[in-house]
Design a protein around this nucleic acid. Structure first.
Length: 429
RNA sequence: GCCGGGGUAGCUCAGCCUGGUAGAGCGGCGGGCUGUUAACCCGUCGGUCAGCGGUUCAAAUCCGCUCCCCGGCGCCA
């Protein structure tokens, strides 16, 4: 019977199994040999006693290096001496493909070496567990959107006008013309709501920010949503339910992975509702902690950290000053110096995981803001067009997948939340 | 962009202050071992000291320039 390494444990004593996998490590004692065999579902010890299998098989494997591929036929034995409580006693083993060279990933290697060999490092059970967790999370996110009636749309990666600041665009030579890699699909989703109502996208965004921190990538996966007939309160309700419910479901479905990663995080610890803190209230909280911040300036990392100490769940920071936000943000009718915006901050200093807000839907108001920011209205022609034909209040958000994975798993660096990270200084492998 | 740390064996690092023929551990390779937990024991191979220039009888070490990496800030998801 073909079996998974990760599930040998649950098979009865004496069961005959076939395992296909890679030699993670080997302990050789002359006529006795132990192999930790890995296959993507887990690791199991295979015990080879020379007397119990063909001599040629034993010899072939004794000279095989780590990560050699093998097929093992053997018998399940529950034995307290085996890691995990069960092992497979080999009766026959076939060396499918011996490693040509010593496998470079081993005990004691440093972070730079691991990054340079990421294509091999992802074989480690921990790296694989993170990738599986990420896959579970995206499945839950997608299921949530589908349950809530959002329609998935796919937007272009080549664009001509900036959504966020223009300085952070990657320029691409497009048949001699300058175009850019997308930073957000927001503008295209704003077009889509007039066709589909509620939409979502899951695709990469690119930011040419010269950020050298543990929470920045130049290419990251962006979950974005946009809704017609939605104001700031509707928006925050959607964001907290999406983040909270999808995260809780993922944690529930990933208990084994969390155990393997040595992480503790209960589904209850991420459940909504989340606190809403207005920008002005945040300044008061900071002032009470002895930190004076000038009204209008954005919060720095230190200020953010102090605020996150106040909460043990993510929380919204709302109503940012107009000058701290992009031109399309809806001014607060109660105070036009503020915007109807909401960032969701993760606790423990992991920073912003969602940026969101209500968009300006009035043509003249949007045009005035574009001019006020010194932008060229002609560059935003089609975007302005959307305000000409039955324009309605609408809101949307963007969630950074790697940021969320990083916070949920307590990862020190965002790079381990993605299979092949792209940063300012890394495009290899 | 600003600030800080770093680059020495395949890997992790010591040596640098106080200049004098390049070190350790791990790994590899060879041998041994029937209950290991990235085992253990014996032997052995292994170097463009990031690069360029300068000072000196002599530079991994002192000085200058350049490149690369990591972290913090700013910016953001």
């Amino acid at each position: 019977m073909l079996a998974d390494c990760g599930r040998v444990n649950s098979l009865p004593d004496g069961a005959g199994v076939e395992l296909r996998g890679w030699i993670r490590s080997k302990r050789h004692h002359g006529r006795l040999m132990f192999i930790d065999l890995r296959d993507g579902t887990g690791v199991v010890q295979v015990t080879l006693k020379a007397a119990e299998l063909p001599e040629a098989d034993f010899q072939a494997v004794s000279s095989a290096g780590r990560e050699s591929a093998v097929v093992v036929w053997g018998v399940v034995v529950h034995d307290p001496r085996a890691p995990g409580g069960a092992e497979v006693r080999a009766r026959k083993i076939e060396l499918l493909s011996a490693s040509l060279e010593e496998f470079p990933i081993k005990k004691g290697v440093g972070p730079r070496f691991l990054s340079d060999h990421r294509h091999l490092a992802i074989r480690s059970p921990k790296a694989a567990a993170i990738l599986r967790f990420r896959s579970n999370l995206l499945k839950s996110i997608r299921n949530w959107f589908e349950r809530e009636g959002f329609v998935e749309v796919h937007c272009p990666t080549f664009i001509t006008a900036a959504v966020e600041g223009g300085a952070t665009l990657f320029e691409v030579n497009y048949f001699g013309k300058k175009v850019y890699l997308t930073q957000s699909v927001q503008f295209y989703q704003e077009a889509a709501i007039y066709s589909l109502g509620k939409v979502y996208s899951i695709q990469p965004s690119f930011r040419a920010e010269r950020s050298k921190t543990r929470r920045h990538l130049t290419e990251f996966w962006h979950v974005e949503g946009e809704m017609a007939f939605a104001g700031l309160d509707d928006l925050m309700r959607v964001v907290e339910r999406l983040v909270g419910e999808a995260s809780a479901e993922t944690l529930e479905n990933s208990r084994e992975l969390l155990k393997l990663l040595g992480r503790e995080r209960s589904p209850e610890s991420v459940e909504p509702p989340y606190h809403r803190v207005k920008y002005s209230e945040a300044l008061d909280i900071l002032a009470s902690k002895g930190v004076q911040l000038e009204w209008g300036s954005d919060l720095g990392a230190d200020e953010e950290k102090i605020l996150t100490m106040e909460f043990d769940k993510p929380f919204f920071l709302t109503h940012f000053p107009r000058k701290a936000k992009a031109f399309y943000h809806m001014p607060d009718p109660a105070n036009p110096e503020l915007t109807l915006s909401a960032d969701l901050l993760a606790p423990e200093g992991y920073g912003e995981i969602v940026g969101s807000g209500q968009r300006i839907h009035d043509y003249e108001q949007l045009l005035a803001r574009i001019v006020e920011e010194g932008l060229e209205p002609a560059d935003y022609k089609w975007y302005l067009d959307l305000r000409k034909y039955g324009s309605v209040p609408h809101s949307g958000f963007g969630l950074g997948v790697e940021r969320l994975v990083q916070w949920l798993l307590g990862l020190k660096n965002i790079r381990s939340a993605v299979m092949f990270p792209r940063t300012m200084s890394r495009t290899y492998p």
